[in-house]
Structure formats: structure tokens, C-alpha cells
Simulated assay, not measured.
Amino acid sequence: MIKAIIFDVDGTLADTEDGHRLSFNKAFAECGLNWNWDVALYDKLLKVTGGKERIKYFVSDFLQGYNKPADFDGFVKNLHVVKTRHYTSMISEGGVPLRPGIKQLILDAHAAGITLAIATTTTPENVSALLEVGLGRDWADLFSANGCGDIVPHKKPAPDIYFWVLEKLGLQAADCIALEDSENGLRSSLGAGIKTYVTINYYTRNHDFTGAAAVFDDLSDLAKFYKTAGLTLPK
């Protein structure tokens, strides 16, 4: 019996990646940097999870000859703060809706007494902005654990965030299923021993999802997902 569903956020609950990309570009411009991440480049940068980590990866692997500021970590942290401000503003204006079926899945599962949780590398501010628009001001009441950002030392594909969530929930991996959208996310959840379903998006369409219980384009057909996952829910 499935006792809990653990959700990734970016790319899973909503197609957020282009919103992140555009927000990074706005932050670069505001901070006087002539950097621009187009779709092709961002596709490569998504190899690394976490916004601050992605900036560092870009500088180290794509900016040959760049002279880092003396306090590079502080520079990256500030840049990411500016990016987060632009991103949460975009989200608050309704610029990034939840993916098909996601809201109904959350409401159905919660009504059925299934525990819900979040396991993501994005910041708490980003999660809150997205779900307040998508689920309402009381969205946090639907989730029993909110694992996000820098709450663990190692981000996906390391399984740390899933182990953290399992500990918070007081559940075993076998009691849960996870919903992910990327290879890094899948490696993370499988590393924690959690059966995982994948919904792909533009940026992850060519990822290796070996080990996933099933792969879907999206959850627009909830009845099919419920049957596949063994969930006894209304749809």
C-alpha cells in the first residue's frame, strides 16, 4: 500500500526550467554581466542541479579566461538572490502554471489520506511562490515534509534529499513512490530505494530513465497513472 507520494518540483510540478533560464538572464543583465543562457546552452547546464552550482559550472566549463571575483562564492550567492527575486516575481504573476493533472493528483491523494512531500534542489522561496499560485495560500497544509534547497549537503543525483524526507515522514522507502522528471532526479530517488515514476519535458526528453517504474509525457490521463502506480483514487 502506498502511504506517501514525494514530488520533485522543477519540471515535475510545473515546466519551470525556461522560467529559471529567463530569470538567470535578467539577473545577469541587472548585475552588469554580458552573459546569456539560450535554450541550447541551458540544456547543457541542466546537467548540474541547483542554481548556484549551475552558475559555478557555467563559469568553470564555459567561460574560458574569466577572472573570478575575489569572493567568488559571495558573488554567486548574490547573483542567485537576484535571480530568485526575478523568478518569484514571474511565478507570482502566474507565468508558470502547474503541469496537467498535477493539482488534481495532489488534491485526490490528500483527500484519500496519502501523505504528500516535496524533495527538490530549488529554494524554499521558489517552491512557495509556485505552489501558492498553483494550489492557494494554504498549500503548505497539504504537505507533511518540504525538503528543498540547501537543506542537505549533497544535491541530486545524490539521494540525500530523499533520505531527509523519509526521515521527516517516518516512513520506509517501500512505503512511498516518487515523481520526477530528470535523470538526476531519478538517480536520486532510486538511490534512496524509492519506486519512481517520470514525467518528461523538453529539457529531459532524451534522458536515460532506466530504472523508472514508468515514463509519461504528462499526467493529463490521471486514470492511467493511478492504474499504473496502483493508486486507488477517484479518477
Rank of each mutant, 00 (worst) to 15 (best):
K3L: 04
I6T: 08
D8R: 08
T12D: 04
D18M: 10
G19R: 10
L22I: 15
A29I: 02
E30R: 12
G32K: 04
K47M: 14
E53Y: 02
Y66W: 14
K68N: 07
A70N: 12
V76G: 09
K77N: 13
H80V: 03
V81I: 13
Y87W: 10
I91C: 08
G94V: 05
L98M: 09
A111T: 15
A111R: 09
T115L: 03
L116P: 12
L116S: 12
A119R: 04
T123G: 01
E125F: 13
N126E: 15
V127F: 05
V133D: 00
G134M: 02
G136C: 07
R137A: 15
L142T: 05
I151L: 14
I151D: 09
V152I: 13
P153D: 12
F163M: 04
A173I: 04
C176A: 12
I177K: 01
A178I: 05
L179K: 07
D181C: 09
S182G: 05
L186C: 11
G193P: 03
G193R: 10
I194R: 05
T199N: 00
F216M: 07
F216W: 06
F216P: 03
K227M: 02
T228H: 03
G230A: 11
L231N: 08
L231R: 07
L231T: 06
L233D: 02
